[in-house]
Design a binder for these strands. Sequence first.
DNA 1: CGCATACAATTTGTATACATAAGGTATGCA
DNA 2: TGCATACCTTATGTATACAAATTGTATGCG
Lengths: 234, 234
Amino acid sequence: MPVDRKTECLEDLRRRILTLDMPPGSALEETALCARYGMSRTPMREILQKLNGEGYVELSQNRGAKVASMDLGVMRVFFRTAPMIYAAISRLAAENRKSQDLALLRDVQDDFRDATNQSDTAKSAMLNHRFHLQIGYMARNPYLLPSLERMLIDHTRLSQTFYNPGSEDERGRIARAVEQHDALIAAIESCDGDAATQLSVDHWELSRDRLEQFVRPDPLPMDMLTKQDETHAV
Amino acid sequence: MPVDRKTECLEDLRRRILTLDMPPGSALEETALCARYGMSRTPMREILQKLNGEGYVELSQNRGAKVASMDLGVMRVFFRTAPMIYAAISRLAAENRKSQDLALLRDVQDDFRDATNQSDTAKSAMLNHRFHLQIGYMARNPYLLPSLERMLIDHTRLSQTFYNPGSEDERGRIARAVEQHDALIAAIESCDGDAATQLSVDHWELSRDRLEQFVRPDPLPMDMLTKQDETHAV
DNA sequence: CGCATACAATTTGTATACATAAGGTATGCA
DNA sequence: TGCATACCTTATGTATACAAATTGTATGCG
């Protein structure tokens, strides 16, 4: 009944998908979601369609919604496309930033740093997501933004293990990621497109190997996820 | 009542937006659309939301839908981003094409050539749209495709004058565009990514100057369109 | 025992009625 | 006459009832 109940629901579903609380391929039953979020089917269907437009869920005719899958074929495309998009967005952000943007970006970065210090995996991944999305907004390019958003969905889902410091090596990697964010902020602040581009590449290189391990973790890759393809995630 | 009445409506609305039959900024009243396409408000709202997700229309809270605007600020971004996206997509299409794709692409190109020979402006622009969208599908990159789709919306709307041969010079330009399509098909067929990239750049250069004229036609730019911001387009 | 078909149950799609919010108009007061 | 406020009109947002389609199950036949 509150006006922003829909917004809340939307953001919660995004969060649950990004944190793998709802694994790729899991079914989203309308009635169950309606009961959970206390609203009718009409607005819930609108939410599902919005999530579909954003790339979070896939819709099939008369067959309902399911969380966007992450099959291996697409993941190979992901690793090839990500550095390109991130580099382009970072350069544009450096060139088109406004000063208010920077304040927002710094706020997100502060929260992100805190989350990593607390070893809160899901929160770290979500705030990293918001950090890069904020850079996307600063780029002010409505044509590229949808691509960035789609990249970030899969990037964040893959990185759910990244911010879980299992070893000293991992801890160092996370610390370096935080530092790279700071450097990226500095480059964007000084409108240095070249530096921002280079830093985005460095940042990508840092996470790439770790992400690839998750995609192909010697035994078998996405099996853990694809096996659950038909589980209900509500 | 037929099942694909919705699909028909969706495609018709896309066409009318792309051909400027519905100018940028024009309001889309739900009840009027329902009457026109013979369906209830529920499915019509779903269509509007889908179009919103694709970038064809903009939605405002409690204020309905309107055709996506084309303001000058965004157009400057358009001209900078277009060659980048087109080049990337063309390369990927050459690298990832399947043979069935090529047959489809050739069919579209044949129809496109016919439309230009008939000097059918709207049809030419629409088939040019489908041609480049087909190349987008062939790239098999779900991350970049949304960017291409958004570029093509504005590109097609801008090009509505392009395929209207007002002079001998224009006619020649159109003929060259058709030839470039053929060359692009050949490059994609032979999986030559470099050639496809170069051809996409050439193709872009050909239309860029003409499109820029439309954006900034000496008197004033989008005024013709933005003035009609609140007209009803149903 | 295996498979196909018919039926039942569940889920999605559509229509309609109602609630709510925005915008315009008229009226009253300064 | 000008402006502010109250109200009325219109359009959007939500809920619910109904229709259609898909899936699972059971039964009958080969």
